[in-house]
Amino acid sequence: MLEYIDVVYDEDYLEHIYIMGDGASWIKSGVDVLGAKCHFVLDKFHLNQAIMRAIGHLGDSVSDARKAIYDGIRSEDKKQSIQSLT
């Protein structure tokens, strides 16, 4: 992957490199290999799975909680979004 990035992109202009996956250790190890610009991000399927595990006990409120969480994820002001959930 490092060779591919080096060939295809001008690394001086890259601000961030994202590795998406399910959080398995072998995927996360790529963050260490690719360096400080690299960040791990859960893919959409596993993000939704984690959110549903966290809020599944809310019963009738699951839909509202999921909407609030996704609104927060999409929000420009992440700090404010987190405060509104607490």
Rank of each mutant, 00 (worst) to 15 (best):
I5H: 01
D6A: 14
V7L: 07
V7G: 02
D10C: 06
E11G: 10
D12K: 14
Y13G: 13
Y13V: 07
Y13L: 10
Y13I: 08
L14E: 00
Y18C: 04
I19F: 00
M20P: 01
D22L: 05
D22I: 06
D22N: 11
G23K: 05
G23N: 08
S25P: 03
W26Y: 15
I27W: 00
V31M: 02
V33T: 12
L34I: 11
L34C: 10
G35A: 05
G35F: 00
G35P: 03
G35Y: 00
K37D: 09
H39Y: 10
D43C: 11
D43G: 13
K44E: 07
K44H: 07
K44R: 11
K44L: 11
F45E: 09
F45I: 05
H46L: 06
Q49S: 11
I51S: 02
I51D: 02
I51M: 06
M52N: 11
M52E: 09
I55G: 04
I55V: 14
I55F: 07
G59L: 02
G59W: 11
G59A: 07
G59V: 02
G59T: 04
S61M: 06
V62Y: 08
S63A: 14
R66K: 15
A68C: 07
I69K: 00
Y70S: 09
D71T: 11
G72D: 08
S75M: 12
D77G: 07
D77H: 09
S81Q: 08
I82M: 13
Q83P: 04
Q83Y: 14
Q83V: 10
S84T: 15
